[in-house]
Nucleic acid binder design. Structure first.
Lengths: 366, 366
DNA sequence: TTGTAAGCGTTATCAG
DNA sequence: CTGATAACGCTTACAA
């Protein structure tokens, strides 16, 4: 498709700092109409227009069933004409509950969480909720500060990418008695709901794969907390059962970059040169480990096999590919959003605890 | 560092779905104290405890200067003892302004925006603001729906990753009269503030680089709207000036994956087989193009040079590296956050329009 | 510097 | 099914 060069808004390029930002006169199809005209319409004005009392307008909007068809029609018409939108703060103040949904992310820089968050937001926004973000930064201290701050907003529900680990925070959230989804792990007693997968099952797949491929001397790189701990323990247990020798595990504080993986690989191989297969906290770490291994003159997978976790969609397409445990992040987010919306609508989701399957994707690194 | 295997909370692994989620009894250093005890404290209770009127408590918290030192001390003590936090909705209802800051992202799946958003959030949260997210999904229709919805929350300020392109939405935002930062481009008349960089300058660097390397027949892959248009126009203009022949440009709807880049490369080379150097909308596209070029038997950069835009930190570390225009995304986000916080505090930032430098990073792909 | 009174815009409650 | 009334918790305006 040859690009047409017609260009209405072309400004002269000075060669310096003039970017001709494209402006668009009107939306393609969507015209906000009066809604976009700064002035704030109050419920009373709508009521006058529809010749009813304010409370009836409120009911027509919140509990349509409580209002007769005729009036409801008049009211909705008046709402449309005025572009009325109720003041969420007044609503929250009176009802004690807002249209906000809290989204707790360890970091918005992590692919997996971000995909889940995006999918979850999509569902929530479609149902008329707004998303408030909280970045816990993988820190308990920060988590404990953040939770009250966000919860002061009286969110109607919350989605947590992960499992809340501090007992105090769990109790705090439980007391709020709002729909809450924890995720990304299996927990026997979630605060409220759970949309997760079994890290343990994932690790089992990895160990079985390593055993099938005939790797006997193995190692692990991961965080020393939360899911990192779960995975390491599971790894050691399953390796024991399968007769694989865990030569060594190294702990890294950060698992967010290829560089972290490079450092960790050199660390673990310096200590445990016999390792022939390596299980890494995630694909970024695994990829960094692979690069560093090659730099040490090792062939991957011939001299060292590497397996990741989480199936990063970017790295999936970079040859030779990292063998990894695949988890449907977007699916988790979507399911979480749907469960929350159901509960917020007074309905009950099919189950309060959902486990997504994990699968092993074999690629070139093992 | 050999991982110690001591493990208090180790549960037996069934081999199925039991993840021993690590629980932590108390925060490391931070104990929210009464704050975490469900009950909501009202300003009146604090006032009683400090033996002042509610309004004085309010002032001690909002305008400390208006309250005498002695009383302020008593009040702050009472606040600490009760764990009081003012109800943000009541505050917003009365004052007409919340402690929310709206964050408009085209997509939270884009590395660059996400980094800026994270850096911006960090600054805002440190100053006591909460972030509400809006995902515009690169769609005008969605943008027009989203903006009123988010603005109904009476955010105190807004950060837009990009420049608002629809005139109607610009006007709407302008009328709100709150601090707003647009970003990621140069605009002569920002709605309020701008923290950007010159896309045009970035493209100039690319063209100069291509000319220096002796590539005469070039092509472009990008989106056909917004910054995509800016870059294509700049590319064509500068190529004209430098004597490079633009053999062809192709437009892609999505620029979010390596796969999109693969498709685009095959498309453009099928149409314009003479192209020797290619400028791509971003590094993901560039990387996909590189992979596809190799699959066609072309050597990169010998047969085809490839340049990206935006400096993805993941791909930066994947050999041979993509030559790219580097932009300090986190810096932009941080600067945006700081400008907003200053304005929200009644101060004026050094400048309302800031331009970050762009630099070319030469790597193996060209 | 401090307090009093009133009201932000909505919805819960209760009466009709 | 509909409406009057009060109240959600705080802060602006004004008075002391």
């Amino acid at each position: 498709m040859k690009q047409s060069l017609t260009n209405a808004s072309h400004e002269p390029l000075t060669g310096a700092t003039t970017d001709p930002v494209q402006r668009v006169a009107s939306a393609d199809g969507t015209t906000p109409g009066d809604g976009a005209s700064g002035r704030k319409v109050r419920i009373e004005e709508v009521a006058r227009l529809a010749d009813v009392s304010p409370i009836t307008v409120s009911r027509a909007l919140r509990n349509p069933d409580m209002v007769s068809d005729a009036r409801r029609a008049r009211i909705l018409d008046a709402v449309a004409r005025t572009g009325y939108a109720s003041n969420p703060h007044a609503r929250a103040l009176k009802s004690g509950r807002s249209n906000l949904v809290a989204l707790f992310l360890s970091s918005i820089a992590s692919q997996q969480y971000t995909m889940a968050a995006e999918a979850c937001s999509k569902v929530l926004e479609a149902a008329g909720y707004q998303v408030v973000m909280g970045r816990t930064s993988y820190s308990y201290a920060r988590e404990s500060l953040l939770i009250p701050a966000v919860m002061d907003m009286r969110p109607a529900a919350a989605f947590i990418t992960g499992v809340m680990e501090l007992e105090a925070n769990r109790n705090f959230l439980r007391q709020l008695d709002i729909p809450i989804v924890e995720s990304w792990a299996y927990a026997a007693d979630p605060i409220d709901m759970l949309v997760g997968f079994s890290n343990t099952d994932g690790v089992a797949l990895v160990v079985r794969h390593m055993a099938e491929r005939g790797y006997a001397d193995v190692g692990f790189i991961g965080r020393n907390s939360g899911r990192g701990t779960i995975r390491r323990q599971a790894f050691e247990t399953f390796c024991g059962q399968a007769g694989l020798r865990v030569q060594g595990c190294v702990t890294v504080a950060n698992v967010h970059s290829i560089a972290d993986g490079r450092v960790a690989l050199n660390d673990i191989l310096d200590r445990h040169p016999d390792i022939r297969a390596l299980f890494c906290a995630n694909d970024l770490i695994a990829f960094g480990a692979m690069l560093a291994a090659r730099e040490r003159g090792l062939r991957v997978p011939d001299d060292l096999a590497i397996v990741g976790f989480g199936d990063s969609d970017v790295l999936a397409e970079v040859p030779p590919g990292i063998t990894t445990v695949s988890v449907d992040s977007a699916g988790i987010g979507r399911a979480a959003g749907e469960a929350l919306v159901l509960r917020l609508g007074g309905k009950e989701p099919p189950q309060r605890s959902m486990l997504f399957p994990v699968t092993l994707i074999e690629r070139g690194s093992s």
